[in-house]
């Protein structure tokens, strides 16, 4: 099953390769990964999408906790979360397709961020399924190139105070 794991790391050179090395060394999957600094410049935040059965996910969480540069590990699947990714899609447009491209962008609240006489570059943000849908619809027009970010995710705030917060997995080595 797919899991989205949110990691807080030391913002140090080498921290990312320790996490990446853990996945390759132990044969775990990484489907996507994104890292950026947090408001505290000494830390960065990583969202990591992986998959595996319960036993593998348990090992992944424990192994991540064991990495000394990892400060906190949260398995977002333990509760409710929102996830987003962004894609930039360059579509080839013949004169009579240009309107259709714009219409599709409009439906998905995507933006055209660059245009040339024979192409549009469309920026779309959304969950994984929305991005897949846009790509599917634009395909018949002729897609020249796609770049996508990894997914970023964040836990939803509970509606009532007692609702389930994601449990941080106890940091222990």
């Amino acid at each position: 099953m797919e899991h989205i794991i949110s990691l807080t790391l030391e913002n140090k050179s080498g921290a990312l390769s320790r996490v990446a090395g853990l996945f390759s060394g132990r044969g775990f999957n990484i489907e996507s990964l994104s890292v950026a600094p947090t408001m505290d410049p000494s830390m960065s935040m990583m969202t990591l999408v992986t998959s595996g059965d319960d036993r593998i996910i348990e090992q992944i969480l424990k192994q991540l906790n064991k990495v000394i540069d990892v400060i906190k590990v949260v398995d977002l699947n333990e509760s409710d979360f929102v996830a987003r990714e962004t894609a930039l899609i360059k579509v080839h447009t013949r004169p009579d397709d240009r309107a259709e491209a714009l219409r599709i962008a409009d439906i998905f609240r995507a933006n055209v961020i660059d245009s040339s006489p024979t192409s549009y570059t469309i920026e779309v943000t959304g969950d994984f399924r929305k991005i897949q849908a846009v790509i599917q619809l634009l395909q018949p027009l002729g897609i020249k190139e796609i770049v996508r970010t990894g997914r970023v995710a964040i836990a939803r705030e509970p509606l009532r105070t007692v609702a389930s917060q994601p449990r941080p997995v106890a940091k222990a080595n």
């Binding site: 030391e10 990495v67 000394i68 540069d69 990892v70 400060i71 106890a170 940091k171 222990a172 080595n173």
Partner: peptide, 8 residues
């Protein structure tokens, strides 16, 4: 004290 390293 290393914030990411606290053996149990």
């Amino acid at each position: 004290s290393i914030r990411g390293y606290n053996p149990t």
